[in-house]
Simulated assay, not measured.
Amino acid sequence: MISTQLVRSSCAVLILTLSGCVTSAGGVSLRADGTPGPEECSEETRKVMNYLRLFVGEAAVVQIDANQSARPITLYDGPIESQLEGDLGLIEAPSRLYGVVWTQGEQVVIRYYEAHPMNGGNKIPLCAVARLGMGQLRKRPDSKPGTALLDATTAAVFIVDAFR
C-alpha cells in the first residue's frame, strides 16, 4: 500500500513541474517565458573579478561555441564552452568561457560563470553575459524547441555584477 506522504510528495513535484516553477540546472529561477530570472554574482566572484581588472562593462569577442564553426551553429539548452577571441581584462585569449545557454524566447541567453586560461592555471570564477548586438543571438525562425539556430558564430561578452 502506498503511503499518504509519498502520494502528497509526488503530487507536489508534479504540480511544481506543470506550473513552470522548477528551476534550471544550477538553481536559476525561470520566468514564465522560459528565460532565466535574476541571479546575483557571489561576493567571492566579484572580488576575483576586481582583482583581475574585470570591471562591469569590460567586453571582448567570443566564439560562441568553441566546438562549432560552420554556419548556422546549433545551440542547445544547457552547458556551453566558448572561446575568447580577444583579451578580457587580464584573461588572455584564447581562454575558454564556461556557462549556460537558454534557448527560449526570440533570442538566446548565455551566462558565463567561469573562465579557463589555455596557458594553464585554475578556472577563474566570473559573471559575464553574451549580449545581443547586430542580431548575433537572435534565433532563426526554423529553430526547433530546446534549440537555437544562429547565423553568427561570434558575439560580444560583457562582465556584469549580477544577472538581470
Rank of each mutant, 00 (worst) to 15 (best):
G133K: 11
V129E: 12
G34I: 11
A70T: 15
C21G: 10
K123N: 02
E39Y: 11
Q63K: 15
A12V: 03
R131N: 01
P141K: 02
P145D: 08
M118N: 14
G78H: 00
L6A: 13
C127R: 10
G120V: 00
T74P: 08
K144P: 03
R46C: 11
A156I: 13
P79V: 00
Y112L: 11
V129Q: 12
V129K: 14
S42G: 07
K47N: 14
L150K: 03
T74W: 05
Y112S: 12
D151S: 01
T45G: 12
A70D: 15
E106P: 11
C11A: 10
D65C: 01
A156H: 09
G99T: 06
Y113C: 03
Y112G: 09
R46A: 08
A162L: 04
G121D: 13
M49A: 09
L30T: 09
V160G: 02
W102T: 02
I80T: 14
V62D: 12
G121M: 08
E39F: 14
C11Q: 05
V101T: 11
A162D: 04
G133F: 09
L6D: 08
F55Q: 06
E44D: 13
V100E: 00
I159Q: 04
E39N: 12
A93Q: 04
S19L: 11
G34E: 10
R138V: 12
A25N: 09
I124L: 07
G89R: 03
N67Y: 00
V7H: 04
S69W: 03
